[in-house]
Nucleic acid binder design. Structure first.
Lengths: 180, 180
DNA sequence: GGGTCTATATATCGGATCGAAATAGGTTTG
DNA sequence: CAAACCTATTTCGATCCGATATATAGACCC
């Protein structure tokens, strides 16, 4: 499932320009799948070539011209074909986790700041998704939203519950009493 | 934090060949950060050029020759410098989630198989990590291992608890009784 | 008034990375 | 005894990201 296919998928929800597809990626797939303009525009060009989408140029005043893409019947079939393929493994690239693997090389203060920031970010994302959960979404979208919320809540909870493992052991060492 | 830096990190744990670094990625970073030979070998060449690692060719009988890499003092400093930079956002590419966004386009049977497979995979990964948890690891590694376990347990649990949202509503609709 | 920021909109390019193949001998498995 | 897999490195096309270029216009600040 490449960006080309995902663009096709977004176009099953309605016509859109490249710019709007980028926004759609941020709205619907944020944190699960991302795509840059450098992928989207060439993808749309190729999909047009292949007859999976059609393109209508739409002049706008006070705005740059827009190219509106619409999925074709052939494109719909191609998309379903792709959807039916068993999904590949998740591919995550987490600099956060990679850094924590080497936690023993970093000052505790630095680690604490990183963990605080991470928990804040996760909780913030959960709050945003909870707001969106109220809106009108398909069952699939509701499931994915709930998944995102569950994952990020688990992340924040795990960090809070286990940060002592890397933030120094003074308070856990038997016999050691906090100063003051 | 690019692959070059991650290679440097792995070399802080001891000398290794490119092949062994690939295995290390699979052991330590599996599902958090991946790297292919196509990234690792050029990375090691560049690190050697820059003086961050040294390379010793080691002829082996009954095996292809090996190039063993060792991190230098300069390399260690460069790695810490990189580690201290605030980690970038996690970047995930999940075909599984992308597919479920369009769950309404897929037959229920197909969805069920996908979800079963996913739960099986997550539970399997958790079992493997639990086994590794017993071994000798640094606090950072223990934290990351626990994180991996917590995330995948949350994933399996969420899917089990919410799969009815996309597997059809017959059993939930008031008044609807299962056939047979 | 000038400066910067943000938003809409598309195109393009360098560089990072993947995934697969090429090469080559040894070992395990059916 | 062939097929499959393990060790080990190199290389290459394809994909994708991130940044930049281009153009216009409203918002905000000093």
């Amino acid at each position: 499932m490449d960006i080309r296919t995902l663009c096709l998928g977004i176009l099953t929800l309605g016509e859109a320009s490249g710019y709007e597809i980028k926004q759609s990626f941020e709205d619907h797939f944020s944190r699960f799948y991302e795509a840059s303009f450098g992928s989207i525009y060439p993808a749309l060009a190729k999909l047009t070539e292949e007859g999976f989408v059609t393109c209508t140029e739409l002049p706008q005043d006070k705005r740059p011209d827009k190219k509106v893409y619409r999925i074709t019947a052939q494109g719909r079939l191609a998309f379903i074909d792709e959807l039916m393929k068993p999904p590949g493994r998740d591919r995550l690239r987490s600099e956060f986790i990679a850094t924590l693997m080497f936690a023993d090389l970093l000052p505790t203060r630095h680690l604490s700041d990183m963990l605080d920031e991470r928990v804040r970010d996760a909780r913030g994302a959960v709050a945003e998704w909870r707001a969106r959960e109220q809106g009108r979404v398909t069952p699939g979208q509701r499931f994915v939203l709930g998944y995102a919320i569950a994952m990020h809540e688990a992340m924040a909870r795990y960090i809070e519950d286990n940060r002592h493992l890397i933030e120094g052991h003074a308070l856990l060492t038997p016999g050691a009493a906090p100063a003051g």
